[in-house]
Amino acid sequence: MSPNALIPSHRKPRRPSASSRALRAGVTGGFLTLAVTGATVPANAAEKPVAETQEMPTITTALATSAAKSADTAEQVAFNYERQALQDSAFSKASKAAEKHKAEAVKKAKAEAKKEAEEARKAKEAAQARASRSSERSTLSAPSTSTATGSTATLVSFLKAQLGKAYVLGATGSSAYDCSGLTQAAFKQVGIDLPRVSQDQSTAGTQVGLDNLQVGDILYWGSAGSAYHVGVYVGDGNFIGAQNSSTGIVERPLNYDMPTGAVRVL
């Protein structure tokens, strides 16, 4: 036995509190009766401060509501950004497509304009060709005096007498001629003094159309005032001229070498 075993304790015995007595009294029935609130709770329930049981639910709800609102706001902002990005992308695609269509339309319009211009050019050339052929037919079928009289008969007779003679550049007869030398010599037979060269002979008289030729008209090749060759119309669609050194002085139909114009001096 301990030496201190019989020494009485100086501590006062603890008196059970009212709540302890009430707890022991109520345990038998299985329920705890609290004098403060008068509520009956299960014996195994723990005591909690009144303030804690009243305030915590309020704080938790506020936080949850705030968090939910923040989440909704963030989601709305994200949605707005995504919608704006989609709109920008769609606008960019539409703009590029519009530019592409515009470029294609311009290209197509240019191609069509070029095609129309080419067709117009071909149509013009065809019309000119038809007009030229018509003019040639009119010239060949134009009435003419096959039997010349007076001055024209003398002129044609002289020209026919020179057929077969040589062409020599600068020659004026009587065994050889160049083109303007022959016409000058022929018109001297009827009292008309022509200039010496083709350029001047092409403007020596009145200009006439090839569809209105008469015997004795001077034909020229090239433009009036700068002609490079001349001959004389002798009727029936023919002319006589000193052509070149290979052929000499010959009679040929107009379509052998269609002249550019004609002048009338008789």
Rank of each mutant, 00 (worst) to 15 (best):
A142T: 03
S95G: 08
S146Y: 12
L140D: 01
R121N: 11
T33N: 15
T172N: 13
G164A: 02
R137M: 10
N238R: 08
T247F: 13
A123G: 03
A68S: 11
S9M: 03
I240F: 03
A242V: 02
L63Y: 12
E52M: 13
S138D: 12
T33R: 15
T152Q: 09
L182Q: 03
L34K: 09
V77R: 11
Y81T: 06
S92E: 13
T172D: 11
A185Q: 03
R137V: 06
A126Y: 07
T139C: 15
G209R: 05
L266W: 11
V208G: 06
H10P: 09
A109L: 10
G241P: 04
A51G: 01
S180H: 00
A171L: 02
G30F: 09
R121K: 15
A85V: 10
A161F: 06
T58G: 14
A78T: 00
N255P: 05
Q54M: 13
V156W: 01
R14T: 00
Q199F: 04
A166C: 01
D72T: 05
A186E: 04
Y220N: 03
L86F: 15
G235T: 11
A85I: 09
E47D: 12
T145E: 13
A68R: 02
S95I: 04
S17I: 02
Q201A: 09
A85S: 14
V197W: 11
Y220S: 05
F239T: 00
R137G: 00
A176N: 01
A148T: 04
A111D: 10
E104W: 04
R130E: 11
D178V: 01
